[in-house]
Write a protein that binds this DNA or RNA. Structure first.
Length: 608
RNA sequence: GGGCCCGUGGCUUAGCCAGGAUAUAGCACCGGGCUUCUAACCCGGGGGUCGCGGGUUCGAAUCCCGCCGGGCCCGCCA
């Protein structure tokens, strides 16, 4: 019975030497299916070989992350720089140590073909057997799924229902939804949640706005925004609007029927519009949770009571506050207003406690402006003895003219962006496929647009602040979704023609030769198989570290590998047995591309 | 003023947390490749003090300290 399992990770892929590390997991439920040879298994074998060799030499490496110095390298499938680590301790040259370890490695290889000594480095190479099994795995009907088995709640988007999503919100939505997909691929059961801010001032302003202005016939979320912006403008000259909003907040918290009805219908109306936009981007939430739920159920007052017991609370000018100065927060956290109504942070505390109790992991995707408040929230949760969420922070998206604001009507909506990108995509498809029907052009344009928008967002690390740029958004030339979608479409095209060819020959000659994977010896073929093999590592690492952009990078590399294969290894013109082998690889690559695209939430077009 | 994040060829960007062998790509620029499975592709070329200065180390884009520049935050808003 295995009680421990080494999770192996690696950073990136291509040329430069990259760091790998492992992480000991103590829970059986995390064990990866060992019958599915992917990169993790190759790496596992390398680790075992190295540990055994080190033991034979009588060498000990210190416990620690990546203590074997494993890394992806342009010189090998996996390289170890462990000799460098041992040199200061053993007072020998790294080259001599590497030589000793190399001699002690033995020959009990399965997925390892050979180990080459290169100065102080030990270079491990994959065996034919491993490569063949990778193809078999990729050819299987079911896409690869990991064994994480955790129940995860991912909260993302959660935009106030006071207007449409804008280009800043979609960074949240795309990162969040991609994480949901990555976690599911890794084997988790994921509940994607939208937290609805129904008790805040913003929503009260929408209701006040609806009392003074008419919702027009535009898309629901846009109509709501107009009313909301108008109400805010009105407040500048008529300060009593603020009092009206305050009264709405108080009546709603008190449960006044008429106010409840007004707020809820306004929210449902706005959310309907927001959902429409999300659906265009292949994003769906599994459940919606309203902050008022947690007030009405009594969770909020229960939490206030528990926090009072910590002895860190106090009343200041009638407001109930939590003093977190000893935890490094200089400002006190106000839990209840002097007028008795609750605040966002208090309701959020209740929501987070509920999430923690109903999941193994909970993930929040939040903009950089929430950093401080989510730090306070986590500290308060710790005081309550509740597991903290894992918070994924993304830096701001601003406009060339400054930051966006729904209230001021200063934003570029997601709908506007999608419309423009789709228009551009339509022109591109029309040039390339003039013979196709209008319906075809429209479908392809829409799917290319969705992909282009999602990929543009997800390819950049969340901690880079960005400035929205139309020119860049509409330029989906190379480093973008269409590049990957196109590779997939090419693979599909080969497979379609290959099938026809096989049918014709089968009817003529009776029998096809079975595919011979070991005929795939071209440099580009091997490279493609190796790239396919890395999928499990990318998913595993992205799921654990919550870094979706790593999958975006992998997708580009996979497509690139396929394009090289496409260019240098003719499939249909090859002699029958080789053709079979290459068709199998094309199918394996098609499956890998499709799975990767699906995990990114990008449509895998079969033709474009 | 304090806290967090970012700074990599003209522009955008990977790698950084877990330091290792020639620093990743794209755009733009120069040149080449469609009678051959979809050229939304492929190949070659030029272009880099990895913000600056110290330190740690056999070895630093990566770790530590200081500085400079940019973003975000510091509400009885969310």
């Amino acid at each position: 019975m295995i009680s421990e399992f080494f999770w192996l990770y690696f950073l990136q892929t291509r040329p430069r030497t990259q760091c790998l590390y492992h992480h000991i997991q103590l829970l059986n439920k995390h064990i990866i299916h060992t019958g599915v040879p992917m990169f993790l298994d190759f790496m596992s074998e390398v680790e075992g070989l190295l540990h055994a060799a080190l033991e034979r030499c009588g060498y000990k490496v210190e416990e620690g992350v990546n203590n074997l110095g494993l890394e992806l390298s342009p010189h090998a499938d996996l390289a170890s720089s462990v000799a460098f680590r041992l040199a200061p301790v053993l007072k020998k040259s790294p080259v001599a140590i590497a030589r000793e370890i190399h001699q002690a490695l033995g020959q009990n290889f399965s997925y390892v073909q050979k180990v080459e000594l290169s100065g102080p480095y030990l270079n491990f190479f994959m065996s034919r057997k491993f490569l063949d099994r990778v193809i078999q795995q990729a050819l299987a009907d079911n896409a690869w799924t990991g064994r994480m088995n955790e129940r995860v709640i991912v909260e993302h988007t959660s935009a106030n229902p006071d207007g449409p999503l804008h280009v800043g919100h979609i960074r949240n939505s795309v990162i969040g939804d991609t994480l949901v997909r990555i976690l599911r691929r890794a084997g988790c059961t994921v509940d994607a949640q939208y937290y609805v801010n129904d008790m805040g001032r913003q929503e009260a302003m929408v209701v006040v706005g609806c009392d003074h202005f008419q919702l027009d016939g535009s898309k629901a979320d846009h109509a709501v925004a107009k009313v909301y912006i108008a109400a805010n403008r009105l407040m500048e000259t008529n300060p009593e609007i603020r009092d009206e909003a305050d009264q709405v907040i108080q009546r709603y918290e008190a449960g006044d029927d008429e106010t409840v009805a007004k707020i809820q219908s306004a929210i449902k109306y706005a959310i309907g519009g927001i959902e429409g936009t999300l659906h265009r981007m292949n994003i769906r939430h599994d459940s919606y949770h309203w902050e008022s739920e947690f007030v009405r159920k009594g969770d909020v007052s229960e939490i206030l009571g528990q926090l009072e017991k910590t002895g860190l609370t106090e009343y200041e000018e009638g407001a109930f506050q939590l003093d977190l100065t000893s935890y490094g927060f200089e400002k006190k956290m106000v839990l209840k207003r002097a007028n008795g109504t609750s605040l966002y942070i208090t309701r959020d505390l209740a929501y987070h406690r509920w999430k923690s109790l109903n999941s193994d992991r909970s993930v929040d995707v939040l903009g950089a402006d929430h950093k401080l408040v989510s730090g306070q929230l986590c500290t308060a949760l710790r005081l309550l003895g509740v597991r903290e969420p894992e918070v994924v922070i993304f830096e701001f998206v601003s406009l060339p003219t400054g930051s966006m604001s729904t209230r001021k009507g200063k934003f570029i909506s997601a709908d506007e962006l999608l419309d423009e990108v789709e228009k551009q995509a339509y022109e591109e498809v029309k040039v390339r496929r003039p013979e196709e029907s209008e319906a075809f052009l429209k479908v392809v344009a829409a799917q290319v647009a969705t992909g282009a928008v999602r990929y543009d967002v997800v390819k950049v690390s969340p901690d880079k602040a960005t400035t929205f740029d139309w020119k860049q958004a509409l330029d989906f030339e190379k480093l973008s979704a269409p590049f990957i979608q196109y590779s997939h479409a090419r693979a599909c095209s080969i497979l379609r023609k290959g099938e026809d060819l096989c049918k014709a020959e089968t009817s003529q000659e009776g029998q096809n030769d079975p595919a011979q994977a070991d005929m795939l010896i071209g440099e580009n073929e091997i490279a493609l198989i190796k790239k396919i093999a890395q999928f499990d590592l990318v998913i595993d690492r992205a799921a654990r570290e919550l870094k979706p952009h790593q999958l975006a990078t992998y997708a580009r590399e996979l497509a690139e590998s396929f394009n090289h294969f496409y260019r240098y290894s003719p499939v249909l013109d090859a002699e029958p047995r080789l053709r079979q082998a290459r068709l199998a690889l094309a199918r394996a690559a098609r499956n890998a591309l499709r799975t990767t695209l699906e995990t990114l939430g990008i449509d895998a077009l079969e033709t474009m």
